[in-house]
């Protein structure tokens, strides 16, 4: 197995609702080895998105990280300064969201929004950026990069938007991509194509992927490891094949049962 790229240790997140304290994440431990695809699976409200956002400290201010460590390349992301964290966001770790239509700003073109990342993290000049944008869009399988770069998010189809979103996420060659339900709004054939794209990008760009989804079936096809979450806890984790073939927990069995009809 490769070295570990991201380690989440004993992560606890709570929300203070008046005087009441509600635990959202309860002592999460998760290892993401380099160059692997790790699936984080669970039902709605199990805390998978919260985990993903916590890695980049993007939780809403109401949610408090009480305890734990998030270690990425030997640095505790929870302890470093914001300016340094901003260097990591997008550059070393980037995120892909479920709804690209909402994750893109409707008033700017796709090209502009990819360029924004390049401006923030690279020293490329205008011409180089334009070329980079086209090559990125090409890399994620968009056939007409020039047109798409000039389009607004609402002018693209769902699959195209998700590809554009991926292009934005890989713009400055991050090590880790956290994909939050990247395919949940797409139809089955598109899901498969996007998953293929992820596999291909991992090999090409030496990416590591943390795939957050409720679809255990999909994860089982492409992920190396899988962690199953329920009610703020990781109930089971291990190598995908082992977990699928021999689930230890009732909850995992239930999830598997759902996909086996």
């Amino acid at each position: 197995m490769n070295e570990t790229l991201l380690t989440i240790k004993d992560l606890s997140v709570t929300v203070h609702d008046g005087s009441e304290k509600k635990i959202l994440l309860n002592r999460i431990c998760l290892d993401v080895p380099s160059l692997s695809i790790v699936g984080l699976v669970g039902g709605s409200g199990s805390g998978k998105t919260t985990t993903g956002l916590a890695v980049l400290k993007l939780l809403s201010p109401a949610l408090k990280i009480d305890d734990g460590e998030i270690i990425f390349q030997n640095e505790n992301l929870l302890k470093i300064a914001l300016s340094k964290l901003q260097q990591i966001r997008g550059k070393a770790i980037s995120m892909i969201f479920q709804e690209p239509l909402q994750a893109f700003n409707p008033v700017f073109t796709i090209g502009y929004q990819i360029e924004e990342v390049l401006v923030m993290h690279t020293t490329l000049n205008t011409k180089q950026r334009k070329e980079k944008i086209l090559s990125l869009l090409d890399k994620v399988g968009i056939k007409d990069p020039k047109r798409v770069a000039g389009n607004y998010p609402h002018q693209l189809s769902g699959g195209m938007r998700q590809r554009a979103m991926i292009a934005q996420a890989i713009a400055v060659d991050p090590r880790l991509i956290i994909a939050d339900e990247p395919t949940s709004n797409l139809d089955v054939t598109l899901q498969a194509r996007i998953m293929e794209l992820f596999l291909q990008l991992r090999d090409e760009l030496k990416l590591t992927l943390l795939l957050i989804t409720h679809d255990l079936g999909m994860v089982s096809h492409i992920s190396d490891r899988v962690a199953v979450m329920n009610q703020g806890q990781i109930v089971e984790q291990g190598i995908t094949k082992e977990v699928i073939e021999n689930p230890q927990q009732e909850y995992t069995k239930k999830l598997l049962g759902n996909i086996k009809f």
């Binding site: 969201f97 409707p106 993290h121």
Partner: peptide, 12 residues
Amino acid sequence: EYVLAAKSLGVN
């Protein structure tokens, strides 16, 4: 969500 997305990309 695009604000969150921009944050996640390290936009200041």
